[in-house]
Design a protein around this nucleic acid. Structure first.
Lengths: 117, 117
DNA sequence: TAAACATATGAACAAATATTCATATGAAAG
DNA sequence: CTTTCATATGAATATTTGTTCATATGTTTA
């Protein structure tokens, strides 16, 4: 009798079981990945870099990033949805700022990695 | 005389100039974004989560992530290129492990953000 | 109230990218 | 030395995603 479905490639079954137990749930891992995906774009990264310095309105961010206000608005929506930025309105002008100290910390860690390697 | 090229949308010119001076260079921002892009994928995030526990070979990672060894191998290449994982060979088996304490720190910060919001 | 302005939004297009499949490489075992 | 096994890799495909363009919303000013 030959088993077609071999336990192929598994080197250490016990180790796998042990790690399986402590691994975060799929949906948590998914959410973490989604968060980092937001950091993983040059335009958004530049927006974040800028907002690390001061609150800014859409038009000013567009100038700083060499983008169009439309493109920036789209990206700010992404940052808003992920709770990375917040905003306040002053007439027709909307000022955006960072919403979470984690943003700064994550950014710093990323920068450290780049600058050290 | 009318200026076609208006300084449209600029709200605070001085603020912009000030921030422009302290903003990281475009290529640094690009590299940081590229780094986070690597974290921004469920499969790679799961690989990283697993490697936070122990070193693992390709086959075992494939099992843990419900992926094929081929897909994992592709992703490990990405993680290798970004200096996030290192490996050691033992015969035909290749063991991967995290290459940088930043990986753990970045992961933790991301997780904190998700779990607090 | 009409015009100008800042921002937002939806659809469409182009570019990037993760997985699959077939195959290659290189090591261990028979 | 031939087969089996673990991993790697290239090409192709399918999906995701960022930007653009046109237009909408809402606010200020003329």
């Amino acid at each position: 009798m030959d088993f077609e479905i071999a336990e192929q490639n598994i080197v250490d079954f016990e180790k796998i079981e042990k790690i399986k137990k402590v691994l975060p749930q799929d949906d948590l891992i998914f959410e973490i990945a989604e968060l980092f995906k937001v950091f993983g774009d040059s335009t958004r990264m530049k927006i974040i870099s800028s907002l690390l310095e001061d609150e800014l309105c859409v038009g000013d961010i567009a100038v700083l990033t060499n983008s169009t206000p439309s493109a920036i608005s789209h990206q700010l929506r992404v940052l808003k949805q992920t709770k990375l930025v917040k905003y306040r309105k002053e007439g027709k002008i909307v000022y955006y700022s960072l919403d979470d100290e984690h943003v700064r910390e994550i950014y710093e860690k990323g920068r450290e990695h780049i600058e050290e390697v």
